[in-house]
Design a protein around this nucleic acid. Sequence first.
DNA 1: AGGATCTGGGTAATCGATTGCCGGTGTGCG
DNA 2: CGCACACCGGCAATCGATTACCCAGATCCT
Lengths: 341, 341
Amino acid sequence: MGADRIDPLAQLSAQHVTMADVAARAGVSTATVSRVLSGSRPVAEDLRRLVLGAARDLGYKVNLVGRALRKGRTSTLGLLVPDLDNPFFSSLAQHLSRTFDGSGIDVLVFSADDDLRIERRGIESFLGRQVDTLVIIPCHESESSVSVALAAESTLTIQLDRRVSDVDVHFVGCDNHEGMRLVEGHVSACVDQKRQPVVYVGASTESSSGHERLEGFRSHFGEHPTYLGTFDFGWGQDAAQRLLADGFRSATVVTAADIIGLGLLGRLQSLGHRVPEDFRVIGFDGIGVARLAHPTLTTVRQPVEEIGRTILNLINTATSADRHTLVRIAPELVIGESSPA
Amino acid sequence: MGADRIDPLAQLSAQHVTMADVAARAGVSTATVSRVLSGSRPVAEDLRRLVLGAARDLGYKVNLVGRALRKGRTSTLGLLVPDLDNPFFSSLAQHLSRTFDGSGIDVLVFSADDDLRIERRGIESFLGRQVDTLVIIPCHESESSVSVALAAESTLTIQLDRRVSDVDVHFVGCDNHEGMRLVEGHVSACVDQKRQPVVYVGASTESSSGHERLEGFRSHFGEHPTYLGTFDFGWGQDAAQRLLADGFRSATVVTAADIIGLGLLGRLQSLGHRVPEDFRVIGFDGIGVARLAHPTLTTVRQPVEEIGRTILNLINTATSADRHTLVRIAPELVIGESSPA
DNA sequence: AGGATCTGGGTAATCGATTGCCGGTGTGCG
DNA sequence: CGCACACCGGCAATCGATTACCCAGATCCT
């Protein structure tokens, strides 16, 4: 505790303290400094103390750029999301960060702003920075293929939640088909479809999740009126008005995402319709705010913690040779007030 | 268009194509390759074409780690947020990313998970990676000081939305005092405070925003019942029950954040109370979902676009010498149904 | 014509950390 | 006592891109 102050001399030289500086001060070679600091090889106790003292006095901070260049690895995972304003993606980012805390791997997030051009830039940026792992939620089912393939050929790449077609790259995501099965089970148990029609409000099939959920819906529910838009609140609101314009005054509305469901639910209520008495609304994803809407939203929850853990496992086991891993995580029905049992 | 295919030989050598490889193939020196690729000095047209062709054939991708080591700069901005699950922070991240698109600077986001230890790790990680700018929303008004000071002494550091005490580091954020003045104006214009009491549901004063909003509230409204918790939905819900337990059956509830207000609003409704008839609820931040609640939330919107632009400007003008810049952005009242005019 | 200047290419040092290899000391064993 | 070997510190090469410096040839000027 006696040597807590920073050496005044050191403050002059200031800014960049390198291993060479520490070595000079401790009177040893940079090799020894490196060994002490990284523990890569034992170093005599007296030298160890000398080096640690010098490092502390000078305020030495490792330069990860130098290390990365030499080691060829960065202990970094790059997460590329389409849009941080979408609560499902940001919560995925949050959980992934939390899962990797303590693993020695830093999670860095980049938002593509739903733009193929920026997505591409993000990939090149992460690859250029030599991230050890690239986790990507591709914007577009077909157009993102090239970028994903590019990434996969230079580093361990994992697709998350959405996948591109035509390219074999690891994928971890929810079983959308199963999710729609759960919804169908719930609906058929408590709705008389003769009296209350079922409609689907989904998202464009340009992303695999939009695509798969639509197909899941169709295969479990059969033919029903279908409205397709984008994964955002605004589309939910628009869709509410389309439904009303098309004459619906009562329906069970299955949506492709909570944000769509929430937009729809809000607009229906604003226009004086009752949920769940007139319209039942069902979401997908299980984002936090779904529980906070009024009424709370019935939804299919994707287990984000498990998704995070799966990715962590994949990294520890997967080699870049087997690109084939495809993990489908089973979702879970959460019944809320917008479509009670 | 004729030489679009990748050279088969190159694919064998695969993985890391360096400038040396490109130079060898083009029959020039690495200096020339660098000059062609970066445009740092003119190069004869024929050589230029040769180099570009070789780079394309080999699938050359610049290694940003090597570049960063040499240049000492990375064209990167590190954004450190306390929690990506908080929609205000994730929307800030999204807008900042969007603002910097096209500027040649990549925005990388790291979540501290509201934990001082992780916040510190994030800072060291960003500093080690030599980010040119570090934008940080500190977790804690006093405990984050050391970390922020550390960052500020090695790179351009800007505090966002929240600031630590005792340290002079650039700050860009909303004028919370002014925000509360707007709320007071709205409330006094349409509420008879004799008949409907005003209460404040805020967040702990451990973050500067919590602190300043509480003070702003007090200075404009005077003494009123005050409940302090955390910046999340759960606290809003709890607070609703505390209010009821304390006997309130009607009140104008001013909250410190939309997420608190939304939690509160939802819980009040679930328990059969009417908003705005019985309780008026007012938020702060202006997150997207505030417009989607039912009823929509009256709130004080922070202009995130302007905040983003301000940071971009600051980076272009600020030197690390003047750490003093303190920008307060004027917020804006958005009247919703939860507290109509 | 001869020196000054300009253009543009190559050589090699450089950024900071890591690590393969060498060698010196000390210990253990036969 | 002598040899083998473990231990541990240092030297110097290395990762990949950039750039200070040098130099050859061309052009320009008086």
